[in-house]
């Protein structure tokens, strides 16, 4: 079957170890910075969440580009992955637009979904 010539791109060994090392360092960084209160430093809410997600996105990008070979492979695979992420973003954003702002349009009282459900400190439920 000599006609089945592969055009496989072989990633150099050092790239794998560099990416693996970077991922471990970034893991240490994300644990380290989680003990810093960025929210009060910058005076903006959810700063710690933003920092944690930025680091996680960098790590995920490194895994996808080099371990999953998206960097050297056909861009069609990257497009597949990105379209999945785009759908997830739409899912999250539109759901949060509803759950966070429905109280601004209608006068609503939070109700337990199931009457028998165990609710703690149920006086706070109406904060929803």
């Amino acid at each position: 079957m000599s006609e089945n010539q592969h055009t496989t791109h072989i990633t150099p060994l050092w790239i794998y170890f560099a990416v693996g090392g970077a991922l471990l360092v970034l893991t240490a960084v994300t644990v380290g910075v989680s003990f810093i209160d960025f929210t009060s430093i910058f005076g903006v809410s959810s700063m710690n969440f933003a920092v944690a997600m930025i680091i996680a996105t960098i790590k995920a990008t490194l895994v996808a580009l080099f371990f999953m070979h998206l960097y050297s492979d056909s861009k069609f695979y990257s497009l597949t992955l990105l379209s999945g992420i785009a759908c997830l973003m739409i899912f999250i954003v539109i759901t949060l637009l509803d759950t966070n702002f429905r109280g601004k349009i209608y006068e609503i009282e939070g109700q337990p979904i199931e009457p028998a459900a165990k609710i703690y400190q149920s006086e706070n439920v109406s904060d929803q």
Partner: peptide, 21 residues
């Protein structure tokens, strides 16, 4: 590829669950 995705999901799970600032 499957194994990397399992790792990728965990990369997000870890800060979301363990490191809420």
């Amino acid at each position: 590829l499957y194994w990397h995705l399992v790792d990728l999901i965990w990369i997000f799970l870890f800060p979301l669950l363990y490191l809420i600032g």
